[in-house]
Each structure stands twice: as structure tokens, then as C-alpha cells.
Write a protein that binds this DNA or RNA. Structure first.
Length: 231
DNA sequence: GCGGGTATTAAGCGTGTGTG
DNA sequence: CACACACGCTTAATACCCGC
């Protein structure tokens, strides 16, 4: 997916209130930008990091700037949590995700379970395939880690995926690594051991675990290739 | 019965999307 | 076209429990 253009480069001053960040643009002006990521963004929200902001044309927005990318460990990292769903759909349609090829329809944000919504629902002669996407921004020693904070919500999603398997459907947890330097993905047991345990349980129960690495540049983010999930 | 500590629950942030 | 809600985590507030 092409990123909105133009992007404005600057330096992160601070992130706060989980939706907001103050950034000093390279022309010296300081702006408050919307942060489309509710996660902890461990290692990606350090003051002094280089960031790229887009500007929305929506006149109703309080803060027109949106934080899109951050430079961490020498690579660009996509922090927009709305992107993984779209990246996944684009990659599936383009045949990049071999495991999810062969379906006729892709729908986004379909209600299911108890008050939840599945990120992608694939349907066709193969039946139904429930795909939950997870945005991954944390990489250590070339291994992508998820989650980067304790998350009960992620556990809920895993339980619901397991339920879909019980009902006879395919269920997939797709980790979207929005940076180019992760060679594999593992649950971050040091951060949330309960999630890691449940992830292994889900895999045993038949929930398919996929991880795809994105190539992230200043103009485009797209899924490029599969990386192994190490449990 | 009271105080202190822990555990659970709820509010809230700004935007995008869906609904009325 | 206006409104309500989901997103997912942080922080605060409330409820609860235990010991004294």
C-alpha cells in the first residue's frame, strides 16, 4: 500500500495520552500528531526517534497530522494499526499469502463470537476462514515479538479463534511484522507469559499461526514474505 | 469496625467506520 | 448528514478482602 504523500519528517518529542504525540518537524515547528496505535509501542516511541507524519485532508480533525512511521534500530517501522488489515487483504488478493489463496470473497470487520469482530473473513468453496491480524512492531535480535504489553484482548481473540475451529471452520492468527528486520516471530513470554501459553494451546487446537514480514519504505508498506513462527 | 492493601472495573483519549 | 461506537491500552476509581 502506498503511504499518503507527502510525508513530513521530524523528531519525536514525547508520546502521551496514548493517541497523541508531539513532534518537532525538520523546519523547526512543533506539532501535535494523532498516533493511530493504542499499544505500548515498546522501543518505538522514544524521544529523539525520527518519525514521518502524514497530513489528513479531513477539515474536522483536531490534529491533522498522523504519525505513520518511526525509525527504530535503523529501520522504518509502521505503527498504524489500521494498516495490517488492509495489508493482509491486499497481500491475499495479490496471492502473496499462499496459505490463504483460493477463496472467493474477503470481508473486513465481520461480527462474530461474543461482541467481537473478526478482522478478515474469507469465504468460498473451501468454506469459511477466520483471520485475526496482529500488528507487530517489536523486534529483538532479529526476532519479532508479540505482544509488547500484557493484552487480555489478544487472549480473547485467540479463544474465539479456537471456538471457530471447534465449529469446523479454518481460523488463522496472522502476525503482520511492520518492519523489515524480523527473521522469525515468537510470543513475548517475558512480557505476557499467559498470552504465550494460550498461543501454544491455540496452535495445538488447530488455530493456524502465520507471520508475514512487511517491507517498509518512506513511500510504501506491503507484505513481502512469510517468516516462521517459533513457539 | 477500621485502616490499608489488593483486585477488578470503568473511563477516556481522537479518528474512522458503520448506522440511524 | 449527525451520531454512536470500536479500537486497545493507561490511569483512576471503586469494590473487595484481609488482618488487626
Amino acid at each position: 500500500m502506498k503511504l499518503p504523500q507527502p510525508l513530513y519528517q521530524g523528531t519525536l518529542i514525547r508520546r502521551y495520552q496514548r493517541f497523541l504525540a508531539d513532534v518537532q518537524l525538520d523546519d523547526g515547528t512543533v506539532v501535535t500528531a494523532h498516533t493511530p496505535n493504542t499499544g505500548s509501542m515498546m522501543g518505538c516511541a522514544l524521544p529523539g526517534n525520527r518519525v514521518l507524519l502524514s497530513v489528513s485532508g479531513n477539515p474536522g480533525r483536531k490534529y491533522p497530522h498522523s504519525w505513520e512511521l518511526v525509525q527504530a534500530d535503523g529501520v522504518w517501522v509502521g505503527i498504524n494499526t489500521m494498516l495490517p488489515n488492509l495489508l493482509a487483504r491486499e497481500a491475499i488478493l495479490n496471492g502473496v499469502v499462499a496459505e490463504l489463496a483460493g477463496y472467493d470473497h474477503i470481508k473486513l470487520e465481520v461480527p462474530y463470537g461474543t461482541g467481537s469482530r473478526i478482522d478478515l473473513l474469507l469465504s468460498g468453496e473451501r468454506g469459511l476462514c477466520y483471520v485475526e491480524t496482529k500488528n507487530v512492531t517489536l523486534v529483538r535480535e532479529r526476532c519479532a515479538l508479540f505482544p509488547d504489553a500484557v493484552s487480555t484482548r489478544g487472549q480473547k481473540h485467540l479463544r474465539e479463534l479456537m471456538e471457530m475451529v471447534r465449529q469446523g471452520h479454518r481460523a488463522v492468527n496472522l502476525f503482520v511484522v511492520q518492519r523489515g528486520d524480523g527473521d522469525a516471530l515468537s510470543p513475548a513470554d517475558a512480557i505476557d507469559p499467559a498470552y504465550g501459553a494460550l498461543l501454544r494451546e491455540a496452535a495445538q487446537a488447530g488455530v493456524e499461526l502465520l507471520a508475514y514480514q512487511a517491507s517498509v519504505t518512506e513511500s510504501e508498506v506491503r507484505l513481502s514474505h512469510s517468516v516462521p513462527v517459533l513457539l
